[in-house]
């Protein structure tokens, strides 16, 4: 009885939390279906209107949403894949290999986390201009491929992998590459998923650098294009909300896709064989 009552209480609390955190998304989606001025209505409008199509076609006229979304998807996919690979390997090396200057190098990486990106913008910009890479996908993707925080995250997780496991593999004659892909990687699956989500979100929401590096509209990513909707006095909020709703989609999908690995990882460690 008592457990039932606590369960009910816990679920009620969780449901409340869910509603509170989901409401802004719901409101944004509803606002995307109403005309601009309705955003300011009091009390807030909670029923979908009939303007969704108008808002989306206005949005498309303003920022070419198809192009912008595909730019974002191209950049974020390549970035997440490459960066995950680089950061995982770097984290593995930092955790499991002993080489000269390893700790100094790792500290240097960690310290670079403390340099604000704004300080790097102008040198990076000059670099890209010198290589003729302004307004290109590589300019958007390359900086920060070796993302210090992701390397740190992977290193911490790699350290938890027992050395004995690697030794056993080596004794059995497994090559280094195979050791990495079939023994190390599967055992840090949850960390891989977490890092992937982190990198994906970082790049998907990235604003300042794409703004500086992309000089023509055809190279804008979603956040840069959405920001261009904000003029001084005339803002079409219906259009903005439609854009915002579209922008949230991929993150949710990506998270749901990887969530499985997340959870299976947690359960995996819970059971002792």
């Amino acid at each position: 009885m008592r457990t039932l009552r606590t369960n009910v209480l816990v679920y009620l609390l969780l449901a409340l939390g869910a509603i509170v955190s989901l409401f802004p998304f719901y409101w944004a989606a509803v606002s995307a279906t109403n005309e601009s001025g309705k955003v300011f209505a009091k009390p807030p409008i909670l029923k979908p209107g009939a303007k969704l199509w108008d808002n989306i076609s206005n949005l498309d006229k303003a920022i070419d949403i198809g192009r912008v979304v595909s730019n974002s998807l191209i950049v974020v996919t390549i970035y997440t894949a490459l960066s995950l690979m680089i950061c995982t390997m770097a984290g593995y090396a930092f955790a499991k290999f002993k080489f000269k200057g390893r700790d100094a190098l790792f500290s240097a990486f960690l310290l670079s986390m403390m340099v604000p990106f704004h300080a790097l913008v102008i040198p990076l910009f000059k670099m890209m201009a010198a290589w003729g890479w302004l307004n290109s996908y590589q300019a958007l993707i390359l900086p920060n491929l070796a993302y210090p925080f992701a390397i740190f995250l992977m290193r911490q997780n790699m350290q938890a992998v027992p050395d004995a496991m690697m030794e056993a593999g080596r004794i059995d004659g497994v090559g280094e590459w195979k050791l990495f892909t079939s023994i190390i990687l599967p055992s840090v699956k949850p960390a891989l998923a977490a890092t992937a989500i982190f990198l994906f979100m970082y790049q998907w929401n990235s604003f300042l650098w794409p703004l500086i590096a992309a000089s023509s509209k055809s190279m804008y990513t979603l956040p840069v294009a959405l920001s261009s909707l904000f003029g001084l006095s005339r803002i079409d909020y219906g259009q903005v909300m439609a854009g915002v709703t579209i922008a949230t989609g991929p993150i949710i999908v990506f998270f749901l896709l990887l969530q499985r690995h997340f959870i299976s990882g947690v359960l995996g460690t819970a059971v002792k064989e």
Partner: peptide, 28 residues
């Protein structure tokens, strides 16, 4: 599965990277 997955991601990224480049050349 996972290493295959990563391989797939990499393959996609190479393909996408290629079209990224070609787009860029057109836009330049």
């Amino acid at each position: 599965k996972l290493s295959k997955g990563i391989g797939l991601l990499l393959a996609t990224s190479v393909v996408l990277g290629a079209c990224g480049n070609s787009n860029d050349n057109n836009a330049a």
